[in-house]
Design a protein around this nucleic acid. Structure first.
Length: 476
RNA sequence: CGAGGAGUAGCGCAGUUUGGUAGCGCGCUUGGUUCGGGACCAAGAGGUCGUGGGUUCAAAUCCCGUCUCCUCGACCA
């Protein structure tokens, strides 16, 4: 009876997805709302997910020759105006500091919405010779963009992210790095987040303010809407020229560098929730789950139960797993539901029966089924094997869902029908901004990314020869 | 900024039509019995009813003002 009441507490994932999402992030204590509108407090459970994402990405960055650094939060207003498109794109959403130290500032300071400008400024001082290149730095920080409507993780006024900024001597190297980072993100999404993504170049309308080209990865959420989950930008010499990033080449000629940047944010946590979550709450992929295995003692006051739990926990921890014993005095049923809602991939129920028989009872969060018959003595291998299976099955499930919900369209009506049905629509596009705008107006769908090849004959809007195959979708 | 809705205990809400002792559920605290899918009993703590004014013997309730939040729209590399 209480079970049904509990299920009702979280909105129905099928019929009320936005409400379901909000319920999950609040009821599982991932976040709380900050006192300033549009800001969120990230609670420890969610922050632990973020730390796991950081660890995995840092390892990949290091392997790609990227080092971490930190640049200031406050940027002189004049920096923002040095690159014309950049200031135009970000001006509406920057927060500005006008007073400090009890007096009005001579020059206002902006709270960084992104750090291209201040990093460009420093790179201008640091880069002198071809020997200084390539220069690859990344920073983990917070940024602020004053958004009108917000939703936890997906769009908040302040959020955490990493932003990598690199300078190269040639356009080719910078362009190649832009694509390499996109591939790095894609591999990370697949193996760490167990999340399939579509990658590709963005249209002019959707690209970063000040970039020559923007590439993005888009993930499909449960309701068929798209979430931009990471971007890489090739800047050409735009920012190098604005900030004087010049070096003397091997040929002795003073020239501008070529820059690129890339970033992913705490929005990835939102992406995880909306990709894998179900009617019971979160489902976290093992590589990022703060708790990979929760041990629920049964009849924990009976002699030997807690001791057996602690012994098992120690063994699994030694095997490199993140383990938690829930020894609170809630009833087992309460604990089951609690940890299912929090998305722990694997639960072990350990009671007198298991201890006596030497067996292991587990519950898989991805299938919501109990499995037994494993031997307690082989717990390490069993659990590791199951976690790997869970990762694989989460990816496969999400991948299958995405593939079956990519449809084609040869007219605006078909495109509308496609996105109304919760699909991505792959359609031809002539490359004209007017047609892109028309699609948005007609179907409330935007061009998410362009496919690498154009195998479609005509533009879905005007019927002229198509230049690109584009994935259209409604987006968060 | 446009349209709609809501402000009462930590959370969710009832009470407002018809003015008359501040209520319910969950949570929390204490003690006890429980524990293989959200257990139960007992006792307890907790509220300037968003806010300012007005009407009245009396206002959560009626009137006027004002603030905040939510949903949808617009906006959002």
């Amino acid at each position: 009876m209480a079970k049904e009441q509990f299920v009702k507490e979280i909105a129905d994932i099928e019929t009320d997805f936005p409400q379901w999402y909000t319920d999950v992030v609040v009821k599982t204590k991932l976040v709380d709302y900050g006192p300033v509108k549009g800001t969120m407090v990230i609670r420890p459970y969610a922050y632990a997910i973020w730390e796991n994402i950081q660890r995995e990405l840092n390892a990949r960055f290091r392997a790609a020759g990227v080092e971490n650094a930190y640049f200031p939060l406050l940027i002189p207003m004049s920096f923002m105006t040095k690159e014309a498109e950049h200031v135009e794109g970000f001006a509406p959403e920057v927060a500005v500091v006008t007073h400090a130290g009890g007096a009005k500032l001579e020059e206002p300071l902006v709270v960084r919405p992104t750090s291209e400008t201040i990093i460009g400024h420093m790179y201008g001082k640091w880069v002198e010779s071809w020997r200084d290149l390539p220069l690859r730095l990344n920073q983990w920080c917070n940024v602020m963009r004053w958004e009108k409507t917000t939703r936890p993780f997906l769009r908040t006024s302040e959020f955490l992210w990493q932003e990598g900024h690199s300078v190269f001597a040639s356009a080719e190297e910078a362009e190649e790095e832009t694509l390499a980072m996109l591939r790095l993100y894609e591999e990370f999404a697949k193996t760490v987040l167990c999340m399939p993504v579509l990658t590709g170049r963005k249209t002019e309308k959707e690209k970063f303010a000040g970039a020559v080209a923007t590439y993005g990865m888009e993930a499909m959420m449960h309701d068929g809407k798209s979430l931009q989950s990471g971007t890489t930008h090739y800047m050409g010499q735009n920012f190098a020229k604005a900030f004087g990033v010049q070096f003397t080449g091997k040929d002795g000629v003073l020239q501008y560098g070529y820059t690129m940047s890339y970033g992913v944010s705490t929005r990835l946590i939102g992406a995880l929730i909306m990709t894998h979550g179900d009617s019971r709450g979160l489902v976290l992929p093992p590589p990022v789950a703060p708790v990979q295995v929760v041990i629920v003692p049964i009849a924990q006051k009976k002699e030997g139960v807690l001791a057996a739990c602690e012994e098992l926990s120690a063994r699994l921890t030694r095997a490199g797993l993140r383990v938690k014993i829930d020894d609170t005095d809630n009833s087992p049923g309460w604990k089951f539901n609690e940890w299912e809602m929090k998305g722990v991939p694997l639960r072990i129920e350990l009671g007198p029966r298991d201890i006596e028989s030497g067996k292991l009872t587990v519950f898989r969060r991805d299938t919501c089924e109990k499995e037994d018959g494993f031997l307690l003595a082989e717990a390490e291998e069993t659990v590791k094997g199951l976690l790997a299976e869970i990762s694989a099955s989460l990816y496969a499930r999400a991948q299958a869902r995405m593939e079956e919900r990519i449809v084609g369209a040869s007219s605006l009506e078909e495109l509308l029908e496609g996105v109304d049905g919760g699909n991505f629509v792959r359609a031809g596009w002539c490359g004209e901004r007017a047609c892109e705008d028309k699609v948005k107006e007609f179907a409330q769908a935007t061009a998410r990314v362009m496919d690498t090849e154009c195998d479609l004959p005509t533009c879905v809007c005007c019927g002229k020869k198509a230049k690109h195959a584009v994935f259209f979708a409604r987006a968060y």
